[in-house]
Design a protein around this nucleic acid. Structure first.
Lengths: 350, 350
DNA sequence: CCCTACGGTTGAACCGCTTCAGCCATTGCG
DNA sequence: CGCAATGGCTGAAGCGGTTCAACCGTAGGG
């Protein structure tokens, strides 16, 4: 039934080179132990047979893997690919490789990837979770797999984390809107199970509370954090009676904001004249949007770099049985003002 | 030195459940062979110990892996993440998982990922190559790993492929420009080692050749296919003496086009009034760009789905020792006209 | 009452590699 | 010349699973 699978093994290499398998292994892992002549012979045999090490066997015996995993909640979001690129840049010259798992905003796929990486006994895991981190991470460490949580603060939690202060970011965004005279503001984002969304929402509320009773934050929940959901939300907003319609919208991320912008444009609503719009993440496309998007910048690349750095610090500590103190790095977000936000009309002429 | 690594193995599970390891294995792989009572006991033991199968060991013995790999040339390009999402949607309910490798437009990283996936003996590989496919794919199949080339035509090649006709796409793009009276056109793209870039360039030349001597295609080579390179190319174009400056630009992909657009805007050059611009891929952000981008649409999601389909057909054939005929699917690209292209001024009033 | 069939289980071989004790020459030193 | 040290290599154990021949009861048929 199964095909012959004529896979060459180290035994074949050893036979061809006229040495034992142990020597072949040494050529690969401790070349200094082998004489030049033998090494040359073995290398020639490897090349001739086109032998490629079976990583499963190596890992099984050696007990260690040479790759780390990263599970992100949406690989279609440039924010996360920028993080990944930061990780890759850090890991690159460490001789490790990075395996990327995309949970596509589905907890089920997220769990599948987590399990897979655990089964593969990756050396470490970077994890940008959709759902609660909970028990999973603890279980991973049971197998000696350290985990660093990316893009989610985790003070006092039993793992390292790298994050940006999302409450502060939400506050910055809405402060900016309030500064421009807006008081009827909508928050567009969801699902609320995602902590980043909750935090940004909370930050928005904080900022608005300074207005006392005169401020109003309408919350429009979206199913996902993508442009499609943004377009849907735009429809909801447009359908509102003119008097009730918010004068400014804070979108939980730039993809939503771009979708909203598109929706407004097709409905003939001018941004920022009729409605101001601010996004979050400051992805590369924010600046290139139909109306250049005001946004909250996160240090995406640095986020990935630092996360990888923490992970390898923990891996090393584990290897050397050294003590390890979990670190929680928190970056501060920055407000980037472009053209999608402007002074509220209700404020004009005052 | 190395930490105690208290990893639980099947032996521990077997001991706790009072059965042999063989039985534990059967519970997992052929539950029908095991009595209900025993199965329940074993499952309880697994849960209690939090045991997770060691995939290395399983794979070593079973000889088969349960995941496929996909190597793409740039995960930061939405075009490729859309392909990936197509692949994931297809693979999802087959019980396989997808491991994603990002070569970030560097042949060195591409090679590293290829090697890694080969070492891991993935079940199959989807490959969107930067460089020549060459020997690598043949070697992979030597290990019983089928490969499907994505986004590159490969008639008569010893592997399946799924692609879009890039020559036709290039022709469509420049035909559109020529139809609007442009005859001094620039092609922006690179590196030329990437076949897609060459094909699109060739298609552009074909389209322009219909003008005879009066057409002129200036080629501006870029180092990468990203927005940064687009911005650089915009600078080059702007620096040209007014008379020589092309009236239209065909960018090899949308990222370049967006970078070019940004560059033109910062230099005060109006698109499309002073210069027309057309991209390629029709990524989601093309429609949302400062000036909505005309582009050549590729069926990105379908590309991924079909590629996965072909791969699993080949995997199955391999398993059953059935004959397999390599298929080469070629989609046709579509022209999408938006606002970034318009009639050439030189053509006005005729 | 013996024989066969069969469901349920065991035990050991084995996958391809790493690792390490041990072997054999050769060399250096007293 | 004897002995220890050293360099280069071998051989076998073992990593944690899967798989399969063999085994053991019990039940059913003749």
């Amino acid at each position: 039934m199964a095909s012959p699978r004529p896979s060459v093994s180290m035994k074949d290499v050893a036979a061809l080179a006229g040495v034992s398998v142990g020597t072949v292994s040494n050529v690969l892992n401790s070349p200094a132990l082998v004489s030049d002549a033998t090494r040359a012979r073995v290398e020639k045999a490897i090349a001739k047979l086109g032998w490629v090490r079976n990583e499963s066997a190596r890992q099984l015996r050696a007990g260690r893997s040479r790759s780390i995993g990263i599970v992100v909640m949406d690989v279609a979001n440039p924010f996360f690919t920028d993080i990944v690129s930061g990780v890759e840049d850090y890991v690159h010259n460490l001789g490790y490789s990075v395996q990327l798992g995309n949970s596509a905003q589905q907890t089920e796929r997220e769990a599948a990837h987590l399990k897979l990486f655990e089964q593969h006994r990756v050396r470490g895991l970077l994890f940008a979770p959709i759902s609660e981190v909970g028990q999973r991470v603890v279980e991973l460490r049971r197998h000696g797999i350290p985990v660093v949580i990316v893009d989610r603060a985790a003070k006092d939690a039993p793992y390292c984390s790298v994050a940006v202060d999302d409450v502060e970011g939400g506050r910055l965004a809405v402060d900016h809107l309030v500064d421009h005279g807006h008081c009827n503001i909508a928050f567009v984002g969801g699902p609320m199970t995602i902590q980043q969304v909750r935090d940004r929402h909370f930050g928005a509320q904080l900022a608005l509370s300074q207005l006392g009773d005169s401020g109003h934050l309408r919350t429009i929940a979206t199913a996902r954090l993508d442009t499609g959901s943004g377009a849907v939300a735009a429809g909801d907003l447009v359908a509102l009676p003119a008097g009730e319609r918010p004068t400014a919208v804070f979108a939980a991320n730039d993809l939503l904001a771009i979708g909203l912008l598109q929706g407004f444009i097709t409905n003939g609503i001018s941004v920022p004249d009729e409605i101001s719009l601010i996004g979050y993440d400051d992805i590369e496309f924010a600046a290139a949007a139909a109306v250049p998007l005001s946004s909250i910048r996160q240090p995406r690349h640095a986020l990935g770099m630092r996360a990888a750095e923490l992970l390898f610090a923990e891996i090393e500590a584990l290897d050397n049985d050294a003590p390890h103190e979990h670190e929680h790095i928190e970056f501060r977000p920055d407000l980037v003002v472009r053209r999608s936000t402007s002074r509220c009309k209700c404020d004009e002429g005052r």
